[in-house]
Amino acid sequence: MTIASSTQQICFLVLSAGIVIGSLGVVLLENIVYSAFLLGGVFMAVAGLYLLLNASFVAAAQVLVYVGAVNVLILFAIMLVNKKEDLKPIKGLQLRRLLSGGVCAGLLALLIRVDITTTWKLPGPQAIGEQATERIGEHLFTDYLLPFELASVLLLMAMIGAIVLARRDILTNDIGTGESVKPGLIEKANTPLLIDKSSP
């Protein structure tokens, strides 16, 4: 075993341990702020895995989009809705958790079995490595041009939709009929979005 291969294996083991422990923390930790930061760590570790797979462009996209945009967005959402609230106890919660854990373990066992028993057609063609970015560009502008353009339309739609959904001001009149709308139907009147220290 050469130094390069053992380094690769050590990197893979460390990254996968980080991913598994981090994602367990995301799911199980009480404090959701810790979960959000651990999620950023998981995203970074996944980007490291992409680097191990010779995919530097996707690794950069992962860091930029996931850590830079999605994780920051989640942190902002946590800041906006972070109110201490006592969750109502549900009866049978433990049973529910155990049952869903069993279902997930079954799914995991199924996936692992498929993974191990299938004979993958290895080794495939030689990986192109450093030219991956150019090849992705060629794909995006030749045979995947339509999905690429659709993705831009999708992003525009998502942006407009997010702005419309998160806006605070509401129409008091129905657009179609012009009648006034019962305000309670749309939104509670003047609920403060930020935590108000004076109110209980």
Binding site: V65, Y66, A69, V70, L73, I74, F76, A77, L154, L155, M157, A158, M159, G161, A162, I163, V164, L165, A166
Partner: peptide, 10 residues
């Protein structure tokens, strides 16, 4: 995923 996160959080 980025679009989904934006709409989901809104």
């Amino acid at each position: 995923a980025a679009a989904e996160a934006a709409v989901g959080l809104a």
